[in-house]
Design a protein around this nucleic acid. Structure first.
Lengths: 344, 344
DNA sequence: TTGAAAGCGCTAACAG
DNA sequence: CTGTTAGCGCTTTCAA
């Protein structure tokens, strides 16, 4: 039963060459005579030889997997980011380890610990810990990482994010252009920069239109889920001077809101217009399709991975000072039915 | 810049002990004097020592990560499976590498190759290759794996799946009970056992009701996505004797269908009743909530992981013949508005 | 309870 | 073009 695992030396013996030549036939094929190489490959095939990554890694000091730590795969937005990352990494011959921090800084720290022990090639992280302290081990171990979906000013780290101020502005500009003068902002945890930035953008749009800040009525949520969106609907309907338009901090909230409004007999967009955020696929799949601020999620994953690999190569190769960069992508408003109704 | 990475020998020297003792203080704490251990830990802390997994793995022959290969994270059903698996693995101190085969047998084969090279602890796989041939390398390498979401009769492998015949039966029984006598089945690729099983269940319900098989009108799709659901709606509406009820092979199809029907002015459930499959969160988040056959996705991920770890332990430990098992979970019908209207 | 030493399987010089 | 060889950092007997 205990069939001894076949190693490089077995192949060498069987092919009548040295282990070095076998190794070369894999890693520098050109330095091996074609005929020898063919013979080796045949033996590899016959014996079912499989390289041991752990041995290679121990030797070379670098693994062939990159880690991606997201907050929550239940939000399709993060799935899109993951897909973009996975495709890019695979194109480079690397595997991606997708993990979920569930927004928990301690889970995040655990995973970061795992990644350092694995000596992964690099990590893409959407930070759960606002202090950024949990990323410290990566820096200490010299493991490249890029922060995704968060703007990081620190010149010592790469980051890819989307301009949330613009996103918020686009959303509310659109609403104001439809004639709305009382807008609710169903938001999320105040400690999230994104939530603050989108509010800033929203207020900028309001100011630009010559309206008072009170035009925006914020309804914060804790979880930014569909359920939270339903709850927010109840609060919205309870408001004295009910807003005629709502800007939601993500599509999950918007979906929950739209459903609850429907259940309450409140017409969308006639009585309440809605704009969501992220433009997840489900946003366009409901009866009254959702207007949403589209974030280039897959593109973010792709770019982040490219930057990560570039940094990893720089570290691996020359000590050429890798220039950390901060990329900020632009969002885009996708107008659909949920906001298409002029008022006033 | 090139700060030499600190290894176990650095810790040993600094703590005035041998490397063996340092290793023991991690792996068999009880065999080390508490005082010695404390001293070592202090040094570890001070030096920021991190174990090298690759070295451990090379030595012990087994890694601390399990792989999960799903078809497509865009379907929340698979995300739920992944979450169940991830939680269970983490509880066991293992990391999970979630990968996507995009339904492509060749991508699947590539990933399986990666997993064998990594010598992962085990793999959970939702097969994309119906022949099961791409899993051969795992078997050859002696890497434990369990097949998820597919029934595998083979006594040589563990599998966890859900009873699709029952699922199909539940869905159509419900529809017939509402008085429907013409039911459409918006299905998927015929090579999928699930698609066939659900049809079998649907037909069984029809037969049990004393109705002819023609009662079921199948509309196959290629992709089982929201877009495919919209397309199917068009086909449905073009039918001569239009069915009054539709059973969809998954919720994505059902969502697309419901949206298209709404756009066409066809009332759900009054004119057409709908039952979906999977009970993803979004199914209950739309204006007319979807009746759906719930599959215990997270439970499947959890169970599969447990079985995998059990098998891995069996392999690692004694040669105690691990008893492969085939677990079949039961689905459950969740009735919501989309099917609540009596006809006839 | 601790130390010494033998590799795990591979890559990358360096010789030939 | 190919062979030899020295480790990569750790775990694990085996002695002391």
């Amino acid at each position: 039963m205990a069939k001894k695992t076949v190693g490089i030396s077995d192949v060498a013996r069987e092919a009548g060459v040295s282990v070095g030549t076998v190794s070369n036939s894999f890693n520098r094929p050109d330095s091996v005579a074609p005929e020898t190489r063919a013979r080796i490959l045949a033996v590899v095939e016959r014996l079912g030889y499989v390289r041991s990554e752990s041995a290679r890694q121990l030797r070379t000091g670098t693994s062939r997997i990159v880690a991606l730590l997201v907050l929550d795969l239940a939000n399709p937005f993060f799935v899109d980011v993951a897909n973009g990352a996975e495709r890019t990494a695979r194109a480079a011959g690397l595997g991606v380890m997708v993990c979920t921090s569930a927004q928990s800084p301690s889970d995040e720290a655990d995973y970061i610990g795992l990644f350092t022990e694995q000596q992964v090639r690099g990590v893409l992280v959407i930070p759960a810990d606002p202090t950024g302290r949990s990323l410290e081990p990566l820096r200490r171990q010299g493991i490249p990482y890029v922060v995704v979906d968060r703007l990081v000013e620190d010149a010592e780290v790469c980051s890819v994010s989307v301009d949330d101020v613009t996103g918020g502005r686009l959303a509310v500009e659109h609403l104001l252009a439809q004639g709305h003068r009382r807008v609710a902002y169903i938001s999320g945890p105040a400690h999230l920069q994104q939530i603050r930035d989108r509010r800033t953008g929203a207020l900028a749009a309001i100011a630009a239109a010559g309206l008072p800040p009170q035009t925006l009525h914020e309804l914060p949520t804790v979880h930014m889920t569909i359920a939270a969106g339903r709850d927010a609907a109840a609060r919205l309907l309870g408001l004295a001077d009910r807003p005629t338009a709502v800007f939601c901090a993500n599509d999950l909230l918007a979906l929950g809101l739209e459903q609850a409004l429907y259940a309450a007999g409140v017409k969308v967009p006639e009585e309440v217009a809605i704009v969501g955020y992220d433009d997840i696929e489900f946003a366009s799949a409901v009866a009254v399709p959702l207007t949403s601020v589209r974030q280039p999620a897959a593109e973010m994953g792709r770019l982040a991975t490219q930057m990560l690999l570039a940094e990893a190569d720089a570290v691996g190769g020359e000590e050429s000072a890798h220039a950390h960069q901060t990329v900020v992508l632009q969002p885009e408003l996708v107008v659909r039915t949920s906001s298409l109704h002029r008022v006033g």
